[in-house]
Amino acid sequence: MSKSHSGRIALVTGAGRGIGRAIAIKLAELDAKVILVDREDPGETAALIGSAATSVQADVSRDEEWARIAALADATFGRCDIVVNNAGIYPTARIEDLTVETWRRTLAVNLDAHFFSARHLVPLMRRHGWGRFVNISSSSIGTPLPGNSHYMASKMGVIGFVRGLANDVAEFGITVNAVLPTIVQTPGTKDAPPEFAESVWRQQAIKRFSEPNDLVGPIAFLTSEDAHFITGQALPVDGGLYKVG
């Protein structure tokens, strides 16, 4: 059987673990070649995927790193069709404890990186008149929690950027959408108290703690040909948590 992502080159950031790893594995299963970007060596994910994976160790919050990533994609494949901006950080701090450094770092990793990815990869997508950006936001923007003002600013920013970018690149056959997970069981959330996670997923229509694999079907869809009339949208994948229309 033919596969939905045959011939595609897909770049996933934060692919070393958690949600990013699950996405990369799924896209490879659908026959894409995947470029794994992570600040830490994404070797474990690469080993799970095999020969369809190419690893790049890079900090996505730095513009010059994106120049290097784009050059590698171009030199290795001559193209890049799909970008999933997943790398993100979520340090909590209530406003009285929120430092300028944490604020800037959160915005840099969660939002600046999305701009840099577009700056460096839209030109490669334009060559083939086809492209897909899926940027990970968060359902928490509709269900605020204390200690997350910087995080919510970054994740609301993701949606604003998605809408703006969708306007700029539509004529090149490039779509741009956001996906909003609820709290997900990942290495990044494993140290949070279980009762905290439960207090979130108990509010969902689907009452269980989300896993990275819950995200892969929606991201496969949005990066496929099937979704080519969908752009500038924000899709919650959160078991029905999002409450504000």
Binding site: A166, N167, A170, T175, A205, I206, S210, D214, L215, G217, P218, A220, F221, F229, I230, T231, G232, Q233, L235, P236, V237, D238, G239, G240, Y242, G245
Partner: peptide, 16 residues
């Protein structure tokens, strides 16, 4: 089942 964890959503298919 590809969307098994999506509920209550409104997916807009409008070309932007």
């Amino acid at each position: 089942d590809e969307s098994a964890y999506i509920t209550g959503a409104n997916l807009t298919v409008d070309g932007g």
